[in-house]
């Protein structure tokens, strides 16, 4: 048991290491992944300015710009990553190794988090400075708790999705694309999710980002009308449930899809 644990910890570190070292060797990613996506957030903030929206809406866009960085990391560098690994010929090596598939995914997550945290922080700082957004944080402790729980649930969702991408062919690229704007819409990245109506918002809350964003907005724009979905404590409770569920489901789904892939011979099928 101890050997298995140590092997898996080393696998997590090994997979994360590649990403961290890769990022340090090629610092140009800072320009590509920070400066340029920042402009997309600026556009949405300027739309609100152009419409004469209340200032907290501009703040919503800045905070969402930072959170989008995490979602894109999960989508492209974790969920879709098994597809790229299959194409590169690494997937069979992972499957042969005496480690859990979750360790490889966690390694990707940890390595990706390093770059994504820098990207999100810079987007938040620069966006706040450019648009003069002011925050009023009601509880730093709750804010940290909400953020950690949101990441736990969303990365669990990413691992669950990766089990699907493991068997995908060229549709992987298009499917990952498909999880961008529809998710930005459903989770209320740019507006309070209640604008989708009560039923729409309830359905959207199945994506943990919806709950996380809503709770974060309540905590950092305290005293301003943010039209929340639930109270922060309820959202935290739901995030705990989501974290447990998505990580458990990911474990089961990875096993199931791996067996399915073996039976149908799709695990090593490239260029399809």
């Amino acid at each position: 048991m101890r050997t298995y644990l140590i092997t898996n910890l080393r696998a997590i570190w090994g997979r994360a290491y590649v990403r961290v070292v890769g990022a340090n060797r090629e610092p140009s990613w800072l320009f590509f992944e920070v400066a340029l996506p920042l402009l997309a957030s600026f556009s949405f903030a300027l739309i609100y300015r152009g419409m004469g929206a209340p200032e907290q809406y501009v703040g919503f866009v800045v905070v969402s710009g930072a959170m989008i960085a995490f979602w894109q990391n999960i989508l492209w560098s974790m969920a879709a990553q098994f597809y790229w690994e299959k194409e590169m010929g690494n997937l069979e090596l992972y499957l042969m190794a005496p480690i859990s598939r979750m360790s490889i995914l966690m390694g990707m997550a940890v390595g990706g988090l390093f770059m994504t945290a820098i990207r999100a922080t810079l987007i938040l700082l620069i966006g706040t400075w450019v648009f003069g957004v002011t925050y009023q944080v009601s509880s730093w402790l709750l804010l940290t708790g909400v953020f950690v729980l949101t990441m736990g649930a969303v990365y669990g969702l990413g691992m669950l999705s990766s089990s699907l991408f493991m068997l995908f062919g060229r549709e992987a690229w298009h499917t990952a694309n498909l999880f961008q704007e529809p998710v930005y819409f459903a989770t209320g990245f740019y507006f309070p999710v209640r604008a989708l109506g009560d039923l729409g918002a309830m359905l959207a809350s199945a994506i943990p980002l919806t709950l996380g964003l809503d709770a974060i907005r309540q905590l950092i724009f305290s005293g301003k009308p943010v039209n929340p979905l639930f109270t922060v404590r309820t959202e935290m409770l739901l995030l705990v449930v989501a974290t447990i569920f998505f990580n458990w489901a990911a474990l089961r789904a990875l096993r199931f899809m791996e067996n399915l892939g073996k039976q149908s011979g799709r695990l090593t099928l490239k260029g399809q």
Binding site: Y48, A53, T175, L178
Partner: peptide, 30 residues
Amino acid sequence: WADPFVFMIYQIVRPLFGAFILVVMFKVVT
């Protein structure tokens, strides 16, 4: 990789939801 109908759905969904985001933003504010 897909039949034309499925492929077209993939092509349509992303721009459509991009438009939905703007519609809701406009409605919420104005």
